[in-house]
């Protein structure tokens, strides 16, 4: 029996429902008489929540949280993008679109919307150019994404390619604290370059794909690599 992403998704939904159905609901769940110690610990926790002392996980990308705090900043960023880089806005009408961007001091979160059909097959990118000496150090590939890491001593280049289809809810966060951000049109698609310290992170919405990575090779070499990328049909 062949296991495709679509069959896995359908089966996972079914398995999820089956497992949750096996659990008691609120009315039939046995009531437990919690100990006094537990109640005291929970009262302390509720107090901490009330005082706002619980810090969220740094890795977590909660869009409602960032949405409330970054809604105004996102609107300003969008208006500035429209004024300063109209070609980037126009490029956003491609099949994979950045829907909203939430900016906070330390982080920028991107939320994407796609009109790419769910049946679209993932086609991995092939790199035509790499600086001399760079060798493949890591590779991971499945039906919807690919991860590549090339190294040459301290130099590195990372490429993560992911297909985003119409039913995907995809959000993506990047560390943009004290970073310089450049948005441009590159090969007909929006390319965002985030310069921080000695590295450049890039986000490129190319065709149906979200392409993200980072390197410490400099902008010229990075763009030469991105220029050489082709889809390996």
């Amino acid at each position: 029996m062949k296991l495709t992403e679509e069959t896995l998704r359908r089966a996972a939904v079914l398995a999820d429902a089956m497992e949750l159905a096996s659990l008691p609901d609120k009315d039939t769940c046995p009531r437990h008489c919690f100990s006094r110690q537990f109640e005291q610990e929970m009262e302390k926790l509720l107090g901490r929540v009330e005082r706002g002392e619980i810090t969220p996980y740094a890795v977590h990308l909660g869009w409602p949280y960032y949405a409330r705090r970054g809604a105004a900043a996102a609107l300003i960023c969008f208006l500035l993008t429209c004024l300063a880089a109209p070609e980037a806005v126009q490029a956003g009408c491609a099949k994979l679109m950045e829907a909203v961007r939430y900016v906070v001091t330390e982080y920028t979160e991107y939320r994407y919307h796609s009109t790419v059909s769910e049946d679209t097959a993932f086609v991995p990118l092939e790199i035509g150019y790499l600086p001399e000496g760079m060798e493949l150090a890591e590779k991971y590939e499945d039906e919807s994404e690919m991860h590549l890491l090339y190294r040459n001593g301290m130099q590195y280049f990372i490429l993560d390619q992911r297909i985003v289809t119409e039913n995907d809810r995809f959000t993506f966060g990047v560390d943009t604290e004290n970073a310089n951000i450049e948005t441009k049109l590159f090969r007909g698609a929006t390319l965002e370059l985030i310069y921080k310290e000695d590295r450049i992170s890039y986000i490129w919405l190319y065709d149906s794909y979200h392409i993200f990575g980072k390197c410490n090779l400099g902008q010229e070499e990075l763009e030469k690599i991105l220029e050489s990328l082709v889809l390996k049909y």
Partner: peptide, 17 residues
Amino acid sequence: EDAVNISFLHAAKNMSM
């Protein structure tokens, strides 16, 4: 009970989800 307590702390850190 310890697991439940720790779980709610974990949930408090992930409330945006």
